[in-house]
Design a protein around this nucleic acid. Structure first.
Lengths: 223, 223
DNA sequence: GTCAACAGGATTGTCTGACATTCTTTCAAT
DNA sequence: ATTGAAAGAATGTCAGACAATCCTGTTGAC
């Protein structure tokens, strides 16, 4: 009898572990935007070889989480407000569509799940833990996206949101943003629960626009 | 001397060349869906080392152009009709938005460029060269996407369209599809030229829906 | 004949080490 | 202070190696 019952069918490779670790590090803001990543340092810190690391870096590059300039190596891209705006606009497009579809097709079980994640965010919103706020909020969206009936919508959305994680952590720290965010999310939830597609779209749109505005404020506030 | 002017020529690395070559090979249907790619074979054919190849493969994996299963290696994913439908739906979302924006912001110079690409497609449509048809049609869209004012919209769209290139080549071969496609594209062009945002959206939506229908037919026709 | 265990080859995952090329920084010379 | 050259650091790329895993065809048992 194996002491560790590992039912995982796909074995986790070094490359996958590395991508996950680095992605998490990037998303949680461990690296300064614009800073360079030195291969030899990362190899030592992660305890892996250069070829494995470089494979992982190529994956992250394709996700647009890092940039790799020939002969200069990988670095954390500095997100301009223009690009951030563009991302928010596409995010709006996708999220509105997802919320609308979700309203007319989510299952009761998943709806309960959505309610639970809203409660989790509510709790986080009362605290000052902005990391918990971002994570629980992300759960909320991901349930909506997972239930919109279009896996591609979900996939693209995840990729985009990852790239603006930088702003999300900061804007959540804004005075009152977490609470107003909670109100907006509750409205989205209520609309979905009521099966009101139109209302879900409207609430969702409102939410993204407010999030964008909050991100802009947090960006302008301190440079 | 304007500091914006970037004279830096980015040297092309082996990895970039490899990604481009493989992407082109995949998009032009050189590999059968579901077929496996053997690293040693590709290395020999491309004349590169395994580490370089593996980096390129990771990039393509992140683009979803290939799949890499641990211990089984890379393969060409077989696109299910479900996923294809999902992609067409998101493509519709993006393309409609892009066409609408394009209508109210494209420059005269770019509009002429768009007209030129439409003519190029017209010529290709008369021929039986389905590859030329797909390429010129792709040019047409890419001009629209490049002028919608949102680089992310463009980026995401490019990634999605690449994944359904399989269908596009086949559906263009369908009896009369190229000609009806031409008519639809001309309508899109006319709407944009007239600066009629609403009409551009409508025409664009129609076009994607018809393309999806054609893809479905070409898929059902022979399996 | 069908099915299961098995051996062997093929293929991938990963590492080490190496070297040329290309930045980047330092330091000296004008 | 500006320029230029040399030293140092980091990347791009390769070759070779080996264990772990997958695939295939054969053998053996029922």
């Amino acid at each position: 009898m194996p002491p560790e019952l590992n039912l995982r069918i796909t074995p986790r490779t070094v490359q996958q572990e590395t991508v996950d670790k680095l992605r998490l590090a990037i998303l949680s803001g461990l690296f300064q935007p614009g800073s360079r990543l030195i291969e030899s340092q990362l190899c030592a810190q992660l305890g892996i070889s250069r070829p494995s690391l470089r494979e992982a870096l190529r994956s992250l590059e394709a996700e647009r989480l890092i940039e790799i300039v020939p002969n200069r190596g990988p670095s954390i891209p500095a997100l301009s407000w223009e690009v951030a705006t563009a991302i928010y606009e596409v995010r709006e497009l996708l999220e509105v569509e997802a919320a609308g579809r979700c309203a007319s097709r989510i299952s009761p079980a998943q709806l309960r799940e959505l309610e639970r994640s809203l409660s989790a965010f509510e709790e986080a919103a009362s605290s000052k833990d902005s990391i918990a706020q971002v994570m629980t909020a992300a759960d909320f969206y991901s349930i909506i996206l997972a239930n919109c009936g279009n896996p591609i919508l979900e996939e693209v959305h995840r990729g985009l949101v990852a790239r603006i994680s930088f702003f999300r952590g900061r804007s959540m720290s804004l005075e009152g943003r977490a609470q107003s965010s909670l109100a907006e999310m509750r409205e989205i939830f209520e609309s979905i629960a009521a099966g009101d597609e139109k209302a879900a779209r409207k609430a969702s749109k409102q939410h993204v626009l407010r999030a964008k505005a909050a991100a802009k404020i947090s960006m302008d506030s301190d440079i």
